[in-house]
Design a protein around this nucleic acid. Structure first.
Lengths: 362, 362
DNA sequence: CTCGTTGACAGGTACGTTTCTGCAAGGTCA
DNA sequence: TGACCTTGCAGAAACGTACCTGTCAACGAG
């Protein structure tokens, strides 16, 4: 019935389709597709001509049609844990932001874009987006969003060892035990006699591994464990827990805090109890924030290197998507970095802190 | 040729299509589509039956096919400014993270997902994802990514007044002039005689509006402007600029810092010059971070309410996408919030700071 | 008894690509 | 001079869905 010579102006008037380009260039649809995608065997003249016409018409291939045809969308999900309504918790802010930033860049460099998908997303939302694969941060075995993605055959790469038997294609993680042991040794070297821990009540892998590493270390060196746990996603609970820890009769003379805000909270608590840092109390916390470089005193922090993790996770995922046989292992352990500052330098308390000078001196 | 009774097992073996559901349920494709989407006029028995069969087969509609057919992808872009290689700059970390978080939640609640798209994305990446619309943060008139999206007819809503004549569908912003004037008045009320400003060298709207508001205020009250500008995306430059500001012969007795890290940097600089806060120097900075609640002393901050902005931006965008005639205006001004803490309370310096007590007292 | 109406479904087309399969024209070689 | 390959391109079949256009029965009204 309808001959092909009707220019099909029924669709969106603004957007030119591949058909329009073909007609305008006087070639077939196949030739246009081949010319623009570098496929087929065409003389350069034809290729140039087609490209030129396409540019002139402002032709943009339909992503949906391409995805439908090729089965590849160029989208990868970034599944984040949720506490309450909001994606990613307060304590993970800096970590998550850095990690997502690096992941975005890495994905972009390989032609992919990132879709933010909270783990508690409504089913109809994340099943309605065509993903080529997913990065999942700190997967729990209860996460049936991830479970179903895996069941659908989508590649999944996790940040953090997968709990339970989640069959992820690859994972990237820090060696949290080694990191904690390293910090405890560092504090002991600095003269700490009784090291306390500020930890979380949640059951995630990071908290669990770090806490047990602490307990093992205590057992090994024969120290009684001194720790306080609090719900890490509650911004106020941290300050209270820090206070509790320093109020104990067996008050530690050094503390490691597992979460980002612990540093300022512990510092504030120390001030309340009249404890000088680092003279009376050594302090280290796990954080990606740079504020700890300019606190009084600057606080030693452990960086989990979220940038490297984000990059590695995305690389592994895209390798899995594209079927690249990478020479990288599918389990990568990213080393942590201890940034030593004044708060854990017991023996040289006055090298970086200048004593106050009088105002007229400035 | 090929009769319809061949079950088309040539496609992905794992995924059931709408055809398979229709065959298994003994109905037509149309009936399946209508039953699952709530369209058409079907008896509830049929609807239930189809739904049941679909569940049993684990049927998931293809997002790509649906997008191609309906023209709606359920994806909205989140376009962020870039400095160097990485999306969103260091100084905007907390703001951006909060804003993105709220935007993600709001989008999710209405059935949309967010795609992170740095403004400097390779052309082929962001033109390869089917977007229903875009949120753009702090749009510059030079941003030809946004320009082209608009030209394609995609709804664009911006966080921040659009520079130049970018024809966005709507925008959300703070009243930055009013915020700055409010802070300056607040500092003056607290006893400040000469208020300094720590600002940026970039040409974005926020920096520009805030700086001119400061200059106007100075002119009005007859104070000589005292300010230092630095490239805000450089993490180190801020500390240097803070130092410079306090080293000036016309040293201010109060400072407002436009960027998040300015608080700690100014505090550190004040310590170096032996200036007590708030006795010798009043301090306010613009930040979303909670660390300023537990610095010594706690620092007064201005919050731009990124959560409210993120939510509002997404609501406006989705309204535009769905053609909803919202009763909300298409330009929304979100009020800022000044969180007053010790650093700007000149007349009551010792209400919240406990003097150090001796260690044995704990 | 006829005729519009309504309910319950099926057929088929279109969405815009990519790509497999052809098919001439021209060159090469025995 | 055929047989055979290469080049340059066109036709048409998918991809999986949504929806428009029927069709066929039952049914009440005139």
């Amino acid at each position: 019935m309808s001959r092909a010579d009707t220019p099909r102006r029924g669709s969106r008037p603004g957007r030119a389709g591949i058909r329009d380009v073909a007609a305008a260039a006087g070639v077939s649809i196949t030739t246009v597709s081949d010319a623009l995608n570098g496929k087929g065997r065409l003389p350069d003249a034809t290729r140039r001509h087609v490209r030129e016409v396409a540019d002139r018409l402002g032709y943009r291939p339909s992503a949906a049609a391409r995805t439908l045809r090729t089965g590849k969308s160029g989208l990868i999900g970034l599944t984040v844990t949720t506490y309450g309504d909001e994606p990613f918790t307060f304590t993970e802010f800096a970590y998550f932001a850095e990690m997502a930033r690096a992941a975005t860049s890495a994905a972009l460099a390989r032609g992919y874009a990132l879709v933010i998908l909270p783990a508690t997303s409504r089913h109809d939302v994340w099943s309605n987006v065509a993903l080529d694969g997913t990065v999942v941060i700190d997967p729990s075995d209860e996460d049936h969003v991830v479970g179903e993605l895996v069941r659908q055959g989508l590649p999944v790469v996790s940040d953090g060892r997968p709990a339970g038997s989640l069959p992820v294609a690859a994972w990237v993680d820090n060696d949290h035990e080694a990191a904690v042991l390293g910090i405890l040794d560092h504090l002991a070297d600095a003269g700490a006699r009784r090291i306390g821990l500020l930890t979380g009540t949640t059951t995630d892998t990071y908290t669990h591994l770090s806490t047990t590493a602490y307990l093992h270390w205590c057992e090994r060196v024969g120290q009684d464990p001194v720790y306080e746990a609090y719900p890490a996603h509650d911004p106020c609970a941290g300050a209270v827990a820090a206070d509790r820890l320093l109020a104990r009769p067996d008050r530690p003379d050094a503390v490691y805090g597992l979460f980002d805000p612990n540093g300022t909270d512990l510092l504030a608590a120390a001030r309340r109890y009249g404890l000088r840092v680092p003279e009376d109390l050594l302090l280290v916390c796990c954080s990606e924030s740079t504020v700890y470089a300019s606190t009084e005193p600057p606080i030693t922090t452990l960086s989990l290197k979220p940038r490297r993790i984000g990059t590695a996770v995305v690389q592994l995922l895209i390798d899995a998507i594209e079927g690249v046989k990478s020479d990288q292992p599918v389990q990568q352990v990213i080393p942590t970095e201890l940034i030593v500052r004044t708060s854990s330098e017991r023996r040289s308390p006055r090298t970086t802190i200048s004593p106050p000078r009088s105002p007229e001196e400035g």
